[in-house]
């Protein structure tokens, strides 16, 4: 396959979460999340107790994918920023290192201007982290944990759980 698995190790994940937490605090947003373009959630930070984060991540990726195709149809490469404004809650979506979607959800406690400003800084910080993650993936295709023992155990779980 052209696109390798996305593999996150401890130090990169910590860096990513630090940047997200800073973005969350400095922009006074409700929550922020990172999703890859296939819809897999990478990280989420903030007030997320009441939301279904998995569904949110999937729909964010679907939304971004659909809007990118709209862009292509009218001759744009893609829209670098999407913004959905609600009465009290709004969603700001942008792209990091071509493959990762950054979603910020905020309410009346902050402004679009501030969110935009802080997102710009966060993207600057996240881009080198993800570029280095992609490079590592290309080189290593991390194999430590996913061995035949893992496979056997996973198969047992599949047999146990995937039934009526």
């Amino acid at each position: 396959m052209v696109e390798p698995n996305l593999i996150m190790f401890e130090d990169d994940y910590t860096k990513v979460n630090q940047i997200l937490t800073r973005l969350l605090e400095e922009s006074s947003s409700k929550f922020v999340l990172l999703v890859d373009r296939s819809g897999q959630m990478i990280s989420i930070q903030g007030e997320t107790e009441t939301i279904d984060s998995m569904a949110f991540a999937t729909l964010s990726a679907g939304n971004y994918a659909a809007t990118s195709e709209l862009a292509k149809i009218i001759g744009e490469r893609e829209f670098s920023v999407l913004f959905h404004q609600g009465e009290s809650e709004s969603i700001h979506i942008s792209i990091v290192a071509k493959r990762i979607i950054l979603v910020v959800v905020f309410d009346n406690r902050t402004t679009l201007g501030l969110v935009r400003l802080r997102v710009k800084k966060a993207i600057e910080d996240l881009t080198p982290v993800f570029n280095s993650i992609f490079e590592k993936v290309a080189v290593e295709e991390g194999e430590e944990a996913i061995d035949t023992k893992f496979q056997t155990s996973a198969e047992e779980e599949i047999d146990k759980l995937f039934r009526e």
Binding site: M1, L6, M8, E10, Y13, I42, A145
Partner: peptide, 15 residues
């Protein structure tokens, strides 16, 4: 293209 996170110990696959 699965997502494997060694830090949060998660593997996500898309079927």
């Amino acid at each position: 293209m699965a997502l494997i996170n060694y830090s949060s110990r998660e593997i996500n696959c898309k079927i």
